[in-house]
Design a protein around this nucleic acid. Structure first.
Length: 496
RNA sequence: GCGCCGCUAGCUCAAUUGGCAGAGCAGCGGACUCUUAAUCCGCGGGUUGUAGGUUCAAGUCCUACGCGGCGUACCA
């Protein structure tokens, strides 16, 4: 080991390395393959819920945990051991029980952060703290880096970059890590109860489609072709419906090569589900039920307090508003799919938004909607019946020309999901995708490609169907009040 | 992208007008057989994000770059 490199280490890391070496030199193992462990800390706590102070149980156990506090006195040492899930128990090491040599070794060798195994009687201290009075102890794993201060919050960046440390010291980090999968498990249970089939469709795609977004591009050496990381599973799930998987869902990652901020991550978890013989209203109801069931699974109530202390109410039926009427009301004049684009442009510019030349008329309407209407919805709200020209995969409204059967679900002013009566006419679908590809040729990097295989699938006949996409990260954000980086265990960050 | 703010000990943070770089916890040495973020005595620990510049003197002022946060624009 180069001496110079050692000298450059911070003092506390150097000291811990020396302790490790000292243990090895004396024939002890700093990282034994196994240590005594008869019970988890949680099991010991559960078995002795309310002992009186200064009680001896006569029961001997071996527990293991990370040392997070030490209170070493001359002949009686105390330590708090913490299990991975956060349960804690006190270890007591006395001169009588472990002997002079092992007590001295404890004081000299054990640092905050080390994993240790302690064997001894379950007792309570005179102050009533549930403890293991050690007959023996052994190091389970030496920690070479000092833990951060327990009682000062870690800097947000350190929490994100070193989530392992965050998980050790911050209860909420442990809680959120489990919350995500509890939410996803609830969704899967809800789908199972509705006879849905879960599938996994390609992440690596030769065409990108199903959403308007810039894809990540990668390369297959075997095929010598460029591939796209998927921006959405939509076109494959529809192939499933064509093939007769009438109720199908997928929960998996999408990748979009776009900005990252407190509400957007380049990779994010997405739920999409499709149901034959359902329309967008059926899908809205199912979506509400899924989210309500997940809310119950996480919070136990549809009226709940988030981690940030705010209260939200997801109970009952959810509000429905309509795009053109609500925009009309907001701008003080009637807006319809026939409203000339010049009028829309004036209204958009009047609120300080700069139109781009690729915008179609419906885009202006959506901008007005977002600016005037949507941010006011705290309670979950379905915004229904969108412009046709911004939704190339949606079926035309059954009675209103220029409008499609689509809703967006807004919670707390942010889009939580979207649902359609799906477009299943292969001829109209082809026209829409060709129009998209022309936009793409004109420089719109988010426009879709003409996916011939998808069109061929539709030509085999897709039953009338409803489809929904729900952002899982967004759902967690809405259930907790956290930003997106807190809901993702290891969010993408630039290298240090 | 653009604008503003930040980056100091292992961690969390101070440092007045440009004038000896500090504290708490953690660490090291010592005392202590019922502690609870133990206490008491003593001692170490810094390339102030990186590279330049101005100045007798730079954590502090200037320039560039890196990383981060917030705001703003686009996307879920």
């Amino acid at each position: 080991m180069p001496v110079d490199a050692e000298d450059d280490l911070p003092e506390q890391i150097r000291v811990r390395r020396e302790k490790r070496q000292r243990l090895l030199d004396s024939g002890q193992d700093a990282y034994p393959v196994s240590v005594p462990r008869t019970h988890t800390i949680a099991q010991v706590r559960a078995a002795h819920p309310d002992l009186e102070p200064d009680t001896a149980t006569g029961e001997t156990v071996s527990v293991a945990g990370r040392v997070i506090f030490v209170r070493n006195t001359g002949k009686l040492c105390f330590a708090t051991l913490r299990a991975g899930e956060g349960t804690e128990i006190q270890a007591m090491l006395s001169l009588d029980k472990v002997g002079e040599e092992r007590l001295a070794a404890w004081k000299a060798d054990v640092d905050l952060g080390d994993h240790v195994s302690v064997t001894g009687e379950v007792i309570t201290s005179r102050r009533g703290e549930l403890s293991i009075l050690a007959d023996s102890w052994v190091l389970a794993a030496k920690t070479l880096r000092p833990l951060p201060v327990e009682h000062k919050p870690l800097a947000e960046e350190t929490r994100v970059r070193q989530r392992y440390v965050d998980l050790i010291v911050r209860p909420q980090a442990r809680e959120v890590a489990r919350l995500r999968i509890r939410t996803v498990a609830s969704l899967r249970e809800s789908f199972a109860a509705r006879d849905y089939v879960e599938v996994e469709t390609p992440m690596l795609q030769t065409m990108h489609g199903g959403a308007s977004a810039r894809p990540f591009v990668t390369h297959s050496n075997a095929f010598d072709i460029d591939l796209f990381l998927r921006i959405a599973p939509e076109l494959f799930l529809k192939r499933c419906v064509v093939g007769g998987i009438d109720r199908v869902f997928e929960i998996n990652r999408n990748f979009r090569n776009e900005g990252a901020d407190s509400t957007h991550s380049p990779e994010f978890a997405m739920l999409e589900f499709y149901e034959a013989y359902a329309d967008y209203r059926d899908m809205a109801r199912t979506t509400r039920e899924l989210i309500q069931e997940a809310t119950l699974a996480v919070h136990g109530s549809l009226v709940f307090e988030r981690i940030d202390g705010e209260t939200r109410d997801f109970s009952g039926e959810w509000d429905e508003v309509y795009v053109y009427p609500s925009v009309s009301e907001a701008v003080g004049r009637e807006i319809t799919p026939e409203t000339p684009v010049e009028v829309l442009r004036e209204l958009v510019e009047a609120v300080g938004i700069k139109p781009e030349k690729t915008w179609v008329p419906g885009k202006y309407v959506e901008e007005l909607l977002e600016h005037h209407v949507v941010s006011t919805f705290v309670r979950p709200t379905f915004v229904m019946d969108y412009p046709e020209d911004t939704s190339p995969l949606v079926r035309a409204h059954r009675t209103q020309p220029g409008v499609v059967e689509k809703w967006d679900l807004y919670i707390d002013g942010a889009e939580q999901g979207t649902g359609y009566s799906e477009l299943v006419d292969p001829v109209i679908q082809r026209d829409r995708l060709v129009a998209q590809s022309l936009l793409k040729a004109g420089g719109d990097v988010e426009a879709m490609q003409v996916d011939e295989d998808f069109l061929r699938a539709l030509e085999f006949g897709m039953p009338p169907s409803g489809g929904v996409g729900v952002g899982i990260d967004r759902l967690l954000m809405n259930l907790t009040g956290l930003n997106i980086r807190e809901t993702i265990l290891f969010p993408l960050v630039k290298p240090e």
